[in-house]
Amino acid sequence: MNEELGIILETTSKVLNKHVDHKLRQNIDNDNSDLINLWDEIEQIGLPKIAVKDKFNGSGLPLSTTLPIIKLSNNIGAPIPLSETILSNYILSESDINPPSGIVTYAIDVKNLKIIGNEISGELISVPYLNLTDKIVFITEIEKTKKVILIKNSREDKELKKNFLSEPRYNLKLNKCKILYIKPVNLRINFKQLGAIVRSAQMIGSMEKILDLCIDYCSQRKQFGRALSKFQAIQHQISEMAVELSASSAALSTITNSDDFYKNKKDIAILKIRAGAAAGKVIAISHQVHGAIGFTQEYELAYFTRNLNSWRNDFGNESYWEDELGKDFLENNNQNLWEYLT
């Protein structure tokens, strides 16, 4: 880890730990002054534009370097669109659009988009945190070129999605919405791959927290006269979570420690597969060892497991990436498996 990143992590950790508690997570709204204060401090330490080019007043760090910061934020369980803003601004900056200030979010998917003149109509699917911002980035193909579009949607035609997520997420109908910027996409890997990397880092941060919650809870909770952690059946379940987590972390470090991860798309698929599979086991086991208390809103476990449920499906689930990876190997070359792996 380089020194600069170490300092940013330390500062981020201080800011988040000062503001984030479980009460904050239960009131994710733009009239919550605690949330606004937290975001103000996030802005002050420059996180939203950390992966934005110098010429747009960003810190210009490689996206891979921001992953430990994103992971940390979700380890602490900060109910803010930090990863969404970092990724949106990165996409804008790479495609030569000056990112706006404040919170920026993206649409994971789009449907039936039509552009007439400087206005766009259609549907934006799965837009996180639209209650906190009106600035949305999305990517769509227009006349065979992929374009990045930035809009500011001030109209109230959004629909809150009921989903597994602890965080707010919306679908949005655009009706002749004014386009602020539209430019050809300039990304070395596509939006889905970028999203897969970021969501994986978020999942791993959350799973680390969940493991800690399980260890703490099982060490304190007594049944049949002894702590749950003293039962071998419980120990083995929690060990299994740790094994899953360690494999996911190993897959993440391949991306984090590489300046040129764009070149190896295999590793991105592997990361999302590994983290998504781990999330499935971690959700099941963590709830099993917590019993009924884990199934409540007042205890914080569910905040983390609900997010996992959603993130493992965002930007392609395990099946999608397994299929992609399998096809990449089977269809695109004449190598045998060992040559492909090495």
């Binding site: 190993a250 099946s319 992609e324 990876l325 399998g326 190997f329 089977l330 492909y340 792996l341």
Partner: peptide
């Protein structure tokens, strides 16, 4: 079988 093979590749490469 691409999904099955992809899954095995992901696990093996991680290991």
């Amino acid at each position: 079988g691409s999904k099955l093979i992809g899954k095995l590749i992901a696990e093996l490469q991680t290991l």
